[in-house]
Amino acid sequence: MLSIYLAFLEVSFKRQITYRIANWAGLFTNAFFLFFKVALFEAIYVGNEVVGGLNSTSAMAYAGLAQVLVMVIPQWGNIGVGEEIRSGQVAIDMCRPVNYYFLTMSKRLGISLYYVLMRAMPLAALGIFVGILIPFKNLAHIPLFIISVVMGSWIANSYHFLVETSAFWIENARGLKTLSTGIIYFLSGIILPINFFPVWAQNISRFLPFEYTINVPIQIYLGTGSNIFELMFFQLIWCLVMSAQCIWVLSKGENQLTVHGG
């Protein structure tokens, strides 16, 4: 059974590789944003020692890492579920002897794997080269970091999946997409590290899934997280909760689905 999902993962990985020019342009844009974010944090830290538990080196590394991970742990864009529901393609996929949710997730993980190799790695190399990314303090944290990135990617993709299944009920999901993207983009820590949020906002954010997508892997990398295993435990919980929600919504949507033959 697993081999079927792995095959889908591989296919979507290979398909992604073929968009060569778009990939180079994307890498270019990503690198650009990396330099901008880092320059911003460098500038605001002048005259400040430690803010929100981050010193200037960690804050710059935070900003850099967010750009390294942003495509691997997707924060915006369509994952294609909405279009498949609207076009009716979803009916064919649902007839397959595999679960549509896991099918989509394996495709998405294939794309994330692609971004690890073609986006995250070159950007990380660039970041280390220009001295933005500080190396791991504790080498034993590397495997934990990798697991955390996988879980973060799972949560983020499930979130997009959940939003896009709204296409079962509403025709035009552009508004919902704008809304949902805005929320995850802000609360995941990409725009501003969660450390800089006021305490009340941090307390709210802790009970929402968003900071478990990108903020937690970054905290593990930087070694600034309160308790790594606690953070990862919550990540795991969110993986399970999001998956359960997606599967539940999918079963509701199935009843809603009408396909016009032709």
Binding site: R174, G175, L176, T178, L179
Partner: peptide, 20 residues
């Protein structure tokens, strides 16, 4: 109505994004 719903959602979306 379904279009209106998405229209309201769209406005709400932009409103929240601005706030963010």
């Amino acid at each position: 109505m379904s279009y209106q719903k998405s229209y309201i959602l769209e406005l709400l979306g932009y409103f929240v994004v601005t706030g963010i």
